[in-house]
Nucleic acid binder design. Structure first.
Length: 821
RNA sequence: GGGCGAGUGGCGGAAUGGUAUACGCGACAGACUUAAAAUCUGUUGUCCCUUACCGGACGUGAGGGUUCGACUCCCUCCUCGCCCACCA
């Protein structure tokens, strides 16, 4: 019937031509409207990309192809996030250097992406571990440091014997929830004090929150940002310490419950604790502080039992004149609010637990909707956030929200406190005691001061070291490389380099900017080019990066924006996060489970087009579903069918005068184009594939396919099946040699005409009281009255209508006639 | 505990408030074949009636509501997933 379908030959035929001629070039300052479509860059390690990663890229890539055909100047770039633990761990395992590991891995990854036929402008390829790239990461760090946004601080950090210091995000609770372990490797983790560089993202908390108004993120993404920033409005109240000049400042969002406050708890790290502690309790309190510091990783985060020690002092509740005992307790966090809280055990579950543990009085000051006014002595009775005030003096009878306002005004007026805002967002720890990262470009002078490396001396290159293993004394491996770290300062005096390196996400905070001007040696990117390309129009990536990565990247960008280095206030206009592709067994793909699907096998057995089709057909981008090889086979069948039906293309052209069959085919085509256009705009690639299937099923039944219809159809499949489309396009047009301008991928997306979609007649559903009872075919020329008349004649409906009065007829054109009886 | 999202056939999923289950998988039956695979054709939500037609009832996690009409909108609840969390 037809030539054999040899997808390998087809792929080989076009791949090199596309990339050699860079047909997917993103043209700076083109007159066409621009679209910047970004998919998160992968972090290559030795492991091959699995098929789940391919799904992350395939859908955005298909979308980018559609936009290109729609007449946009599209940038769909790709690069490699090379620094960090995955590559380093792999290098250690393979007994090679990270540099060698990366070289091989990026080569493999690029090959994999080209085998998939991805429409990438490879002239913009970047690698975050390339000195020409990280030169600018270092440059940006210096800007941050000079602005006072990078500080060195003695901080409690997560410490792991195998990996050194870890960020909060790199630490997870263990399975039993009793310990903390590292995200990577699952090693035990504990809390230690360590000198760390931190980035003061908290300085930007308000702007990161406010500027969410400028972007089009959907609610879940926005809410994620809002929650992570965790802005809380409340009041800082100063409580006088009885028999002392000291005051303890306490943050609360619920000052309305203050008539029920019966104690104060301070974090062990609070600077006032030892100052106010009475002599007879000093030793006990100091011991508690030391213990909580040591054990903190385990108990403080995970054991909910309330512990604490009485300091021997009391604070005065200015509303009740009661003396409130002051405790130290490790459930109070030093970094939230003021590091001290006022205990209202009747209306806060944690406070209740603490009060029970220490036999402190519990007062009811709120009655909930249950009307219960009894004494609170069970956790379930704690009324947290709804009700009316009681036992609260001038607040009695007020609803909570009104009481909050009234007491705030009162406390402020009496100068007992002032309104305050606090954020859950915490400053980021920015240094790592590892080899494989960007060196922090700072120098310690002999006098202890810090000096930045001159811009002209950037990059500070990471030295090649055969022995790059982590030290187990908590210092960076670069500490051992004296030749590298001993330098001279600007005045020529001996000095020492900062030997800590940056975390993985330093480079990935700003990579999307570098794509815009990947080879610029003078600046990180040309401002005019940034004005053209930014902001990113659509940003696709991993669901796990939706909150933290997005926020940190926005922060980094905003710092640059503040200094005028980048043109707009926000980097990403829109974001969509992908779901997860599970193994065929319905579990997360992992080597240990043996359920990892290797895209190499898919390409080998079914080809790139089929693999791409299946990865987009399997379900919506944001959802999670298992891999099913039979689905891939079905998509392979589709691609193969398309190849085989080309034998039906006779050379004829569909015209007005042609046969009914051809008219039908034309109508089917235009329906397809219309649906595809709508679905592509909405990035619903899964249903786009369905529409192609429907049309192909139709073509399989006809004897002849007019050439013009075939050509439009080829364009329709081009974004999803680029290889097949190119093969058929070149063939049907009879191009005898390659010219990039003739590539199907640079053609215009086909248009559809509503006039061709018009049906002469439509089938209406006839309902009685909203229940479908019959169908009726009507001409589109029929008016409402004649249609109603026709409906009344339907034999089937007689038994329902017999003897009943029709009260109302609802007519929805092209859809429904509903008789209400 | 908080936030977000989702519950539709045996499975992945589709449906601007308008005939629920498109498309695909799987299953079943048939054709081709010595046979199998591949391919092709048909059937396939559940239940009832019927020899067969023809029909009917129920049906989108549960229960209410709005509507001529609800997978879709509103309220209450349940379950699952993801993110965050001794955050005062």
């Amino acid at each position: 019937m037809s030539e054999t379908f040899d997808f390998k030959k087809i792929e080989e035929n076009w791949k090199d031509k596309w990339y050699n001629d860079n047909i997917y070039e993103a043209v700076d300052f083109s007159d066409k409207p621009k679209k910047y479509i970004l998919a998160e860059l992968p972090y290559p390690s030795g492991k091959f990309l699995h098929v789940g990663h391919m799904m992350r890229y395939t859908v955005p890539e298909i979308y980018s192809r559609y936009l290109r055909m729609k007449g946009y100047n599209v940038m769909f770039p790709m690069g490699w996030d090379c620094f960090g633990l995955p590559a380093e761990t792999y290098a250690i395992k393979e007994k090679i250097t990270p540099q060698e590991a990366i070289k091989q891995a990026t080569k493999d990854y690029k090959q994999a992406m080209q085998n998939m036929g991805y429409a990438i402008d490879w002239k913009r390829e970047i690698n975050t571990s390339d000195p020409n790239y990280y030169k600018w990461t270092q440059w940006m760090f210096i800007k941050l440091w000079k602005k006072g946004l990078a500080e060195i601080k003695e901080m409690p950090v997560w410490w792991c014997n195998e990996l050194g210091v870890l960020a909060d995000e790199e630490v997870l609770p263990s399975k039993d929830g009793k310990r903390k372990i590292s995200e990577r490797g699952g090693y035990p983790v504990e809390r230690k004090m360590h000198k760390q560089w931190i980035l003061k993202i908290t300085n930007y908390a308000d702007r990161l929150l406010k500027d969410l108004d400028l972007v089009d993120y959907n609610d879940s993404v926005k809410q994620g940002q809002i929650n992570w920033i965790g802005k809380k409005e409340g009041i800082n109240i100063d409580y006088k310490v009885d028999g002392s000049d000291e005051k303890i400042k306490v943050f609360t969002t619920r000052p309305d419950t203050n008539f029920g406050a019966t104690f104060i708890v301070m974090a062990p790290e609070h600077p006032l604790v030892l100052k106010i502690t009475v002599p007879e309790r000093f030793l006990e309190v100091r011991k508690y502080i030391e213990e909580s510091r040591k054990k903190s990783d385990l108990e403080r985060a995970n054991i909910r039992e309330k512990t604490g020690v009485f300091t021997g002092k009391y604070a005065i509740n200015m509303l009740t004149e009661d003396k409130m005992p002051i405790y130290v307790g490790d459930f109070v966090l030093s970094h939230f609010g003021t590091g001290a809280l006022v205990g209202v055990p009747g209306h806060d579950k944690r406070d209740f637990e603490f009060a029970q543990a220490f036999n402190l009085p519990i007062k009811r000051v709120v009655i909930g909707s249950d009307g219960d006014n009894s004494v609170i002595n069970k956790l379930e009775q704690v009324q947290e956030n709804e009700g009316v005030m009681v036992n609260s003096g001038f607040l009695n009878g007020l609803k909570i929200e009104d009481a909050i306002e009234k007491i705030k005004n009162y406390l402020v007026e009496k100068r007992f406190g002032e309104r305050a805002v606090t954020f859950g967002l915490r400053d980021q720890i920015f240094s790592r005691q590892r080899y494989w990262g960007e060196p922090i470009p700072l120098i310690y002078k002999q006098d202890g001061n810090i000096e930045a490396v001159e811009e002209s001396d950037l990059p500070v290159k990471l030295p090649i070291m055969k022995d790059f293993l982590a030290s187990n004394d908590g210092t960076s491996p670069l500490e051992r490389n004296k030749e590298w770290n001993q330098v001279r300062d600007k005045r020529g005096n001996p000095a020492k380099r900062e030997t800590q390196t940056m975390p993985t996400w330093a480079g990935s905070n700003w990579y999307f900017i570098r794509y815009i001007d990947a080879n610029n040696e003078k600046v990180f990117a040309d401002l005019e080019k940034m004005k053209y390309w930014l902001p990113v129009d659509k940003y696709f990536g991993d669901a796990g990066h939706t909150t933290a990565h997005l926020l940190y990247s926005r922060f980094w960008y905003k710092v640059l924006s503040n200094e005028g280095y980048v043109p707009y206030p926000e980097p990403y206009q829109w974001r969509m996060s992908g779901g997860m592709l599970l193994g065929p067994d319905g579990h997360k793909m992992s080597k240990s489970k043996g359920n990892v699907v290797d895209p190499k096998d898919c390409l080998e057995n079914y080809g790139a087009d089929a693999t791409r089709t299946y990865l987009s057909f399997i379900g919506p981008y944001e959802d999670t579903y298992p891999w099913n090889e039979n689905g891939l086979i079905a998509c392979f069948r589709l691609v193969k069918n398309i190849y085989e039906i080309k034998a039906k293309v006779s050379g004829g052209v569909a015209k007005e005068s042609t046969s009914d069959v051809t008219k039908k085919t034309t109508k089917m085509l235009h329906k397809l184009i219309k649906k595809l256009t709508i679905m592509m705009e909405a990035m619903k690639i899964n249903t786009s594939v369905s529409e192609i299937m429907i049309f192909v099923n139709y073509l399989k039944k006809v004897d002849d396919i007019p050439t013009n219809i075939w050509k439009d159809f080829i364009k329709c499949i081009a974004p999803i099946m680029p290889f097949m489309a190119e093969e058929l396009w070149q063939e049907i047009n009879g191009f005898d040699h390659w010219d990039k301008n003739n590539s199907v991928h640079l053609q215009d997306w086909p248009e559809y005409y509503e006039s061709l979609l018009q049906e002469d007649s439509v089938i209406l559903a006839v309902q009685i009281n909203g229940k479908a009872r019959a169908q009726v075919e009507v001409s589109i020329e029929d008016n409402e009255d004649s249609i109603k008349e026709n409906v009344m004649k339907i034999e089937k409906l007689k038994k329902y209508l017999d003897g009943k009065e029709i009260k109302k007829v609802v007519y929805v054109p092209k859809r429904v006639v509903n008789l209400v009886i």
